[in-house]
Write a protein that binds this DNA or RNA. Sequence first.
DNA 1: CGGTATCCCCTAAGATACTG
DNA 2: CAGTATCTTAGGGGATACCG
Lengths: 177, 177
Amino acid sequence: MEDGTSPSLSYRGDTDDGYDVRQWDVREDCEVRQILDRIADKWSLLVIALLDQRSLRFTELRRQVDGISQRMLARTLRHLERDGLVSRTVHPSVPPRVDYALTPLGATLHETIRALVTWTETHQQEIAAARAAYDVRAAAEQRQADEEAAARTALARAVLERGGPGQAQDVAGRVPR
Amino acid sequence: MEDGTSPSLSYRGDTDDGYDVRQWDVREDCEVRQILDRIADKWSLLVIALLDQRSLRFTELRRQVDGISQRMLARTLRHLERDGLVSRTVHPSVPPRVDYALTPLGATLHETIRALVTWTETHQQEIAAARAAYDVRAAAEQRQADEEAAARTALARAVLERGGPGQAQDVAGRVPR
DNA sequence: CGGTATCCCCTAAGATACTG
DNA sequence: CAGTATCTTAGGGGATACCG
């Protein structure tokens, strides 16, 4: 069966401080969360985007997405169909032909998603810059930490060699912390 | 190190049919995909939503989200920080205090996400209905299949008992394809 | 063609313990 | 308090094989 819907999660956080922060946050564990998970999933978005252009058959989708396994495409499509986002039409012919199309509901979702993609495209540069800056900072801190560790090791060695901590005053001054 | 950025995925689908379907689809494998994955991730959304109200400390977030592990919160926050969506401020005091807040960039993202959440809330009913309908259909088809299987089994048994397929004409008429 | 069933691997994420 | 390090396990997802 492989289930398909996760077992609720439920992050209630019943903080009794009277302060009702969170507006839609609390309800996320019931419906919103699941739908978000669906559209956030690796393949759903691609399929929705592709179907927005025109309806497609199973194999056409398989080829267009390229990288998706038959299993995952079938799974994705069944999920989307179940949620009423995609319609499945079987043509009784030989060889069999099955068409998938976006439902009106699916189309409105695609519109909404577009906004998100647009946001991403708009701020792509800022994000890239932020990442670069972060990575530089992180690398610097790492180097710093390494140096301090090396200094501590040197101090320890010095202490051991000279036979006591009293003799290490001169080197201790140069060690951080 | 645990990496943090997935190894590119690359679903190119170089269909040389000249028909250039897909507008933003193709670019998804580079930047958009990653950012979408980030914001779509299980915890990021919650954290962003929470921080939109006011800045919070690590433990406050931990309590509010309730269900998140220390590990995942730390990870989520570092990701968000790296992407420039959340700022981290360390107050050099004892006990140590670290505040997390949404950056302006993070705030704009929160606005965009709101649209999605609104969509979900608006269409919640439709989706629930679609799921219910699907499940009913699926159950019906399952029952159908079971009955046919049972019929086939009965036919097979009848054939074996009577000693030949020629004797099974009467029952064969009642068995679906 | 359009799937489902099966096996199997690998990583994301929870639990736990330790550090500054 | 605010994390990091380490171990372990569930399940997401690919490969393969087979049905209608």
